[in-house]
Every structure is written in C-alpha cells, then in structure tokens.
Amino acid sequence: MNIFRLGGDLAHLLAIIILLLKIWTTRSCAGISGKSQILFALTFTARYLDLFTNFVSVYNSVMKVVYLAAAYATLYLMYVKFKATYDHNHDTFRLEFLILPAAGLALIINHEFSIIEVMWTFSIYLEAVAILPQLFMVSKTGEAESITSHYLFALGSYRALYIVNWVYRYYSEGFYDMIATLAGVVQTVLYCDFFYLYITKVLKGKKLQLPA
C-alpha cells in the first residue's frame, strides 16, 4: 500500500458517500445516471468474486464489502425507493454498447484465460467506460448540481491517483499491470473535460454548465 493508492481508495469512498448522501438527503436522484450505477455494481460484482477465496487484508476485504453494499444500495434508492425521481428521459445511453465490447475484449486480451481472471479483466474494461452514461446525461441536461459535480470530481480523481500509484509501484517494486494501467488511463481521460469545467467553474462557485 502507498499514499497514492490509499488516497485513491479514499477518494473513491468519498465519491460513493457523496452520492448516497445526495440521494438520501434530497430524496431524489435527479441528474444521476442509473445506468452508470448499474455498470458500477456490475464492475464490483465481477471484480470481487474472490472476496471469500482470496484474503489480502482486513482493509481490502472491508473496502470490497463497502463498495458492493454501497453500489447495490444506490441501485435500490434509484430504482425502488426514489424511483419517481429517476430521470429516464435523459438517461438513455445503451448499456449493451459498453458491456458487450468490454466482455468481448476481456475474452481476447487478458492475463490468463480463466473464469476469475477474465471476470476481473471484464470489470477493469467496464469500469473504464462506466461513467459514460453519466457524462452523456450531464451533456444532455446541459448542467449538473454542484453536489453531483463534487461526486464526479472525487470519482475521477480516484483512478487518476491509481495511475500515480502504478507509476510509484513500478519504480519502487517493479510491479506493473498493463491492462489495469491502460484502462485506468482511458477512464481518467474521459473525465478531462469535466475536470476542466469543474476547476474553472464549480470551484469559483458557478454552476456546472456544459456548452450545449
């Protein structure tokens, strides 16, 4: 463990907590893409199949359980409890356009052709594009609540910090994982224009408005 990875995990945890708090306190999931949340739940499910078979540390196991519980709790809040506030009309990204290519690529490019490894690889590729429905929704509605933009900033920062972690681990222990690293770069690049808007607008107290 290093401070970059710990920082990344805490940014990820913060993002998940911000989202749950936003939905719970405003009792509304307006502006949030349920499709992205489905992809995140899928990602964690496919990645943490080894939750009971591969014990790394208490921290690792606890965080996996927290991520899984939070992902499904968010789906419950969006599709059951506050279903009436879910914005179907703006959350229209076709999930199959993301799930099928990620699954196909995971079958072709992986570290090992085994169930657990292909599922892990699928989760890595899926996570890289999981935010697209959310970014698509923000561009369609043309704006986002400030709490939603804080959520996106924390979520985007998490994988950016992981990239620093991989650089650090490469030079300090010779560890590298090209699949996770390249997918992480793609994932972080997708946030770039949002990061620009967040830093130039939201941090100045303005609302996040996307040029329509």
């Binding site: 990875r5 690792n60 965080m63 991520y67 570290h111 994982d177 996770a180």
Partner: peptide
Amino acid sequence: ATKSMNKDEL
C-alpha cells in the same frame, strides 16, 4: 508480459 495476477488492489 503484462502479468500482475496478484490482486492486492481494489
């Protein structure tokens, strides 16, 4: 190779 295989990251 691109191997890592040790899944110690989240």
